[in-house]
Simulated assay, not measured.
Amino acid sequence: MWKNIIVEVREHTAYVTINRPDKLNALNKATLQELQEILGQLKVDIEVWGVLLSGTGDKAFVAGADIEEFVGLSATTSKELTSWVHQEIMDVLYHFPKPVIAAVNGFALGGGLELAMACHIRVASEQAKLGQPEVALGIIPGYGGTQRLPQLVGRGKAMEMILSGEMISATEALDWGLVNHVVPQEQLFSSCEKILEAIYRKSPQAVALAIDAVNRGLENPKSGYEREIAAFAEAVETQDFKEGVSAFLEKRKPNFR
């Protein structure tokens, strides 16, 4: 069905794989359009509880945007492109109501790193390399890198990565807080699946509310507290809350819907 992306659902997890190995899985507009449609479908699919995002092969997660498509861009068309990618893909991922884990299986550069940063959790293989090399092309990160990278690693380290354009290793990314875990390549998917399985045992309604509250606070700390209070109030009205409390008092595992 999809030309540039492979989608497979197994045991309630949607495995979404950017499939352009000859281009190191670079994001061209056609791939981004497919990703937009796929995310829209997965968001409402009740059989899908979470998403594992990766790239084909063991060389690259996503090596960046497809630079060939940048040739001849005007200020107007580039603004339209980046606005669309922000609103329809990166922000959708960032606010996705189900857990999304990026399995960083190789190079995550430029738009590829920005795609990974839009996910909720990042797990990298030991061979992964991460970076924002845009300044070497005379541009800057345009898919959220100047905003999400400082949130994850702090202003100083983000400035170093963005201004130098140099890549960092998976170990450095772990030390800096850019990824959650670094594992051997052969354990990458099983490590991601283990995290998702732990989340699946919890209330899906509470998970969605927690994602929203955390994101709201990062965007605006004051409104984040307000959203946490409102989300907590929403949670206590759900069937999941009743089931969770009953299971706790009855000393059994909860059976969430």
Score class of each variant (00 low, 15 high):
Trp2Pro: 01
Ile6Met: 09
Val9Ser: 05
Val9Thr: 13
Arg10Pro: 06
Ala14Val: 08
Tyr15Cys: 00
Tyr15Gln: 03
Ile18Leu: 14
Pro21Cys: 08
Pro21Lys: 08
Lys23Pro: 04
Asn25Leu: 06
Leu27Glu: 00
Leu32Val: 10
Gln36Asn: 11
Gln36Ala: 06
Gln36Glu: 15
Gln36Ser: 09
Glu37Met: 12
Leu39Trp: 03
Lys43Pro: 00
Leu52Ile: 15
Ser54Tyr: 04
Gly55Val: 07
Gly57Leu: 02
Asp58His: 15
Asp58Ile: 09
Lys59His: 08
Phe61Cys: 04
Ala63Pro: 05
Ala65Gly: 15
Leu73Ala: 11
Ser74Ile: 01
Ala75Ile: 09
Ser78Arg: 12
Ser78Tyr: 14
Val85Cys: 03
Val85Asn: 00
His86Val: 07
His86Lys: 15
Ile89Gln: 02
Lys98Asp: 03
Gly110Phe: 03
Gly110Lys: 04
Gly110Tyr: 07
Ala118Glu: 01
Cys119Arg: 02
Cys119Met: 04
Cys119Asp: 00
Arg122Lys: 14
Glu126Asn: 00
Ala128Arg: 00
Lys129Arg: 15
Lys129Thr: 09
Lys129Asn: 03
Leu130Phe: 01
Gly144Arg: 04
Gly145Trp: 02
Gln147Pro: 01
Arg148Gln: 07
Val153Phe: 02
Val153Ser: 06
Val153Gln: 06
Arg155Leu: 13
Ala158Ile: 03
Ala158Asn: 05
Met161Ala: 02
Gly165Asp: 03
Met167Gly: 00
Ile168Cys: 02
Asp175Gly: 04
Trp176Val: 04
Trp176Gly: 01
Trp176Asn: 14
His181Ala: 10
Gln185Tyr: 10
Leu188Val: 08
Ser190Leu: 11
Ser191Met: 00
Glu193Ser: 07
Lys194Trp: 05
Ile195Lys: 12
Leu196Gly: 03
Ser203Pro: 00
Leu209Ser: 02
Val214Lys: 12
Arg216Thr: 12
Arg216Leu: 11
Gly217Asp: 08
Gly217Ser: 10
Glu219Pro: 05
Pro221Arg: 10
Pro221Lys: 10
Gly224Ile: 05
Glu226His: 14
Glu226Phe: 13
Glu226Trp: 10
Arg227Trp: 01
Arg227His: 09
Glu228Asp: 11
Glu228Lys: 11
Thr238Asp: 07
Asp240Ser: 15
Phe241Arg: 05
Gly244Leu: 09
Val245Pro: 09
Val245Arg: 13
Ala247Asp: 12
Arg252Phe: 09
Lys253Gln: 14
